[in-house]
Design a protein around this nucleic acid. Structure first.
Lengths: 346, 346
DNA sequence: TTCCCGAGTGTTTGCGATAACACTTATTCC
DNA sequence: GGAATAAGTGTTATCGCAAACACTCGGGAA
């Protein structure tokens, strides 16, 4: 007498209901249950009601793996991104998730440790092997652009803040325009020229902001001082600020993001310079804390929520086979607070 | 003669390779391919090499849906969380994703619009219907605790920062100890008592910090002033700071997070109070910018990365059937900078 | 009446992988 | 030498669902 294998050692799971169970309870075939769930109008109302009641009673939930296997669609969107602890990427991700949820999609994420071609390809790979229907890439680094050119061509992909020359739609804030706006604002206050504390080299946002800043200065025939590059952190803003503080024609600075602006403000104060009386500062991003900097920071607001929403809409279109815009720009907005004032006399 | 259906109208996709294709190319059965991928040691090295070559040549990637269907395991971990744009949740999420990735798991997210039982159940539902293997819930609100009691009992779940009485493991920073440390630090500087600017009611972290702060004051026989509750934002810190500024025995304040501390610092300055000469301030979190506040903020560092890592380890154990710790606490650390000083004379 | 049509439902098949088991062949042991 | 064993591989069944097609039935058109 042998003991039956694999029985008894497991405490008899109350096995979850499958479609067949629902069908049986409702006295119909599994196919009818499927129809009730996917094309209710094809089922007579009273049958439908019986099925729905059975679904309810058994707490039935369709098995997505089985559905994916047969339909080829998963209802999952992949997002690959770099450093989601930062305000910008985090907000974008959040907006994407919201938009996805409203369209019955869920979101799978793949964070990147580094920004380079291998890393991006690998991130996309992790997602595609989870059968995502499409991918949004939030990787605003120029090295990424390269990686983006070598993706599976049939996969619906949309990038956020990517450089030129990627073979699919891109959604981005118009960094160039934002930087230009900030720079013009400072010039309009009477400053002779504007210094720039930029983001790290090879970040597309950083380059675009440099370009926007430079273009305004050049158009106005102002002197263009070499920008100092930080790494987006308050720490780097502080460090560069100390160097900057000793320049004698320093009256206006455009900083590539709010965190660096924060470090800069502190460095200036430590050097005995008052903001905005002696030096004017304009940031970029409008993080929620910007209004509580000392002094409250004049900055350029990026609407990450809109970016996320648009990016989702674009992948969704691609998934549905619609070929939409190739490059959407969201307008940034100058938020005037108190860190930028008129040029000091002298 | 009828035309063959569904041929020619679709522009002949280069259909992706499936296991059978690999098998054919390598001259083996599909089962052998499967073994090469899942239990390579059971296949003779030369066969294995042939199969691997075929995999390479066809660019074969296993179809996860099919695998999930038959194995019942997806390799996907669900994370439900509230407001991932904030530093804490974002960092936790990031750490979870990292840990997951290192263990060949990927991560699906479900953001919550609100913190209540329905919302949490719905978020978990969205994830389970995607066949996740386990779920980590980052929802530090007391109303969540209720929702957490009504989840499918067989689903491996771990919570981050949940209150007592949830029926599964919880990982959290020891908020009580952190608050106590901050409070003791202020008392040790000679302050007679410490005010508290707390987080919103019903947030478990907020309550724990209040409790930690209160317990030290009571143990030392100091006066306990009613805490003022903010909403974690710099804005609320500023607003409450204005109210606080007029109190005449105000020399030390413990603030429940760094953003509120920032708003508070500004309000104090606006009221003509110097920090730390007139008033000492200690925050909580140690966000990356805290060192660049004016003055640099003394605060309590939460190690979100460790929290995320532990939470992942715990779900992983549960998925594997290991029943581990029920409540893990991560020690916070007081980071002394310049915003807290000795009690002013008088 | 007969036929056709469409609405509503059921049956069969197949999605792509793995579990379980069956089958070879070589190896070991008595 | 023969049985027992192990290593390597193949066969078959199955996971849960939906696509495709088949069937039934009643009502209108011819």
């Amino acid at each position: 007498m042998t003991t039956p294998p694999h029985r008894g050692d497991v405490p008899h799971r109350p096995k979850v209901a499958v479609m067949e169970d629902v069908a049986e309870l409702a006295g119909v075939s599994a196919m009818t249950v499927s129809r009730v769930l996917n094309a209710p109008e094809k089922v007579r109302p009273e049958t439908r009601a019986r099925v729905l009641a059975a679904v309810q009673e058994l707490g039935y939930r369709p098995n997505s793996a089985a559905r994916v296997l047969v339909t080829g669609r998963s209802g999952v969107l992949g997002v690959v991104s770099f450093d989601t602890t930062q305000y910008g990427p985090a907000s974008t991700l959040y907006a994407i998730e919201r938009a996805a949820r409203q369209n019955e999609y869920s979101v799978s994420i793949a964070s990147l440790d580094a920004l380079n071609r291998r890393s991006i390809a690998e991130g996309v790979g992790r997602l595609t092997s989870q059968s995502v229907d499409g991918v949004i890439i939030v990787a605003p680094h120029e090295s990424a652009t390269d990686g983006l050119r070598h993706l599976p061509p049939d996969l619906p992909v949309v990038a956020v803040d990517a450089g030129d020359g990627v073979p699919f739609p891109v959604v981005m804030v118009d960094q160039h325009a934002g930087a230009a706006r900030a720079t013009r604002h400072l010039l309009s206050l009477g400053h002779r020229t504007v210094w720039h504390l930029s983001g790290p080299a090879n970040w597309v946002d950083a380059s675009a902001r440099v370009a926007g800043w430079r273009s305004v200065l050049e158009a106005e025939g102002r002197e263009v001082r070499e920008p100092l590059a930080g790494d987006w952190s308050a720490r780097s803003g502080h460090e560069l600020g100390r160097r900057l503080a000793s320049e004698d024609d320093l009256t206006a600075i455009f900083v590539a993001n709010d965190q660096m602006a924060m470090g800069l403000l502190r460095a200036l104060r430590e050097a005995g310079l008052r903001v905005p009386e002696d030096v004017s500062v304009v940031g970029f991003d409008d993080i929620p804390e910007a209004a509580y900097f000392w002094p409250p920071l004049t900055t350029v607001r990026q609407d990450f929520a809109t970016v996320g929403r648009l990016a989702f809409q674009l992948v969704l279109d691609r998934i549905d086979g619609v070929l939409g815009e190739r490059r959407l720009k969201v307008e940034p907005e100058l938020v005037v607070r108190e860190s930028a004032g008129v040029r000091p006399p002298g």
